[in-house]
């Protein structure tokens, strides 16, 4: 039996893992959705095929993340989501449209396919924008002044571009020929915007929150924190160079940009997480204030210790089964 203080840390860690997994996994498939071409049926089919076996499980990480927030920090769940009620609703509508359009486009009569493709793209865009917007509102402490909204808009664009970037690198890894070359170009372009986005949001965040500024720029912290943005920047540069090289020879190392992208996401998330810890709702509620009863969390933890590694294992298995370049995706 763990005590309340330890459980709060364990569960915020588990939740952080889920959010990160979600951002990476659903990030790339939302990105692919946003990049879907409406004028090239063949490319659209391959792109959708590349995420076909995965999107369902990817989205489940969101359910886990929101579920853990609800279970472990119920007060934070209702405080956060009540403040973000409408954007959360819009995000859900986006995710609904994206998810079902995926299935309908393959099964509806062919005449309706362009409509479902549009809904797929629109749903993905909607979900990404609202997620970014909610992140922005959360980070600025639900600031409803003009500057608060502007910051949230900026965050919406930043997150969407980051998703497009990881989606494009996913396609660089999973596709061949013309589509791969096209994706390399898209990846380069979105990389630049994503970099500017992340840098701006991080800088603005520091200016907005003097506490966080102090946290980052005091003595022992600065030593192990400064590497985060520096390494992140270096990874962006490395990814850019790799993409340039891939334009000439797309056959070797096509998976590296995606890998770098995962690292960038992880580092950015770690930086964000450190900035706010131990707050679960910035400047309002700490994890220890919001945590649920140990009787409940211990019971869930026993299961989670066994189940979470199992989930990671069979997720890896599923990626191994569908390893390599996308083939025509069919229901067998």
């Amino acid at each position: 039996m763990f005590d309340k203080e330890t459980l709060a840390v364990i569960f915020v860690g588990l939740m952080g893992l889920s959010v990160l997994m979600y951002a990476i996994l659903d990030g790339y498939d939302l990105g692919v959705g946003m990049l879907l071409p409406l004028d090239n049926q063949q490319h659209a089919d391959i792109m959708v095929a590349s995420i076909g076996p995965f999107w369902d499980a990817n989205e489940t990480w969101l359910v886990l993340a929101i579920g853990l927030l609800l279970i472990a920090f119920p007060a934070a769940h209702s405080l956060t989501l009540k403040a973000l009620y409408l954007p959360a609703t819009f995000m859900l509508i986006g995710l609904i449209l994206r998810g079902v359009a995926f299935d309908f486009r393959a099964k509806a009569s062919f005449g309706h396919r362009p409509t479902w493709d549009k809904l797929f793209k629109l749903g993905s865009l909607f979900a990404a924008l609202t997620q970014g917007y909610m992140l922005g509102m959360y980070v600025n402490g639900f600031d409803t002044s003009l500057s608060g909204y502007l910051f949230a808009m900026l965050s919406a664009i930043g997150v969407s571009c980051a998703y497009c970037f990881i989606g494009a690198t996913w396609l660089v890894m999973k596709t061949e020929g013309e589509l791969q070359l096209k994706s390399i170009k898209t990846a380069k372009r979105t990389l630049v915007i994503a970099f500017i986005g992340i840098a701006t949001v991080s800088a603005t965040n520091l200016l907005f929150n003097p506490d966080i500024y102090a946290k980052w720029f005091t003595f022992p912290n600065i030593l192990f924190l400064m590497p985060i943005p520096i390494v992140c920047g270096a990874l962006f540069a490395l990814a850019f160079m790799l993409l340039k090289r891939l334009q000439k020879n797309p056959h070797t190392g096509a998976g590296f940009p995606f890998l770098l992208c995962i690292l960038i996401f992880t580092l950015s998330f770690a930086g964000l997480g450190f900035s706010f810890f131990p707050y679960i709702v910035p400047n309002q509620l700490t994890i220890w204030q919001a945590v649920a009863a140990p009787e409940a969390l211990n019971f869930l933890l026993y299961g989670a210790i066994v189940v979470v590694p199992t989930i990671l294992m069979y997720t890896a298995y599923s990626y191994r089964v569908f390893w390599g370049k996308v083939q025509e995706l069919r229901y067998y």
Partner: peptide
Amino acid sequence: TFLGIMLF
């Protein structure tokens, strides 16, 4: 996760 394998 296994739905992906089941379907494709």
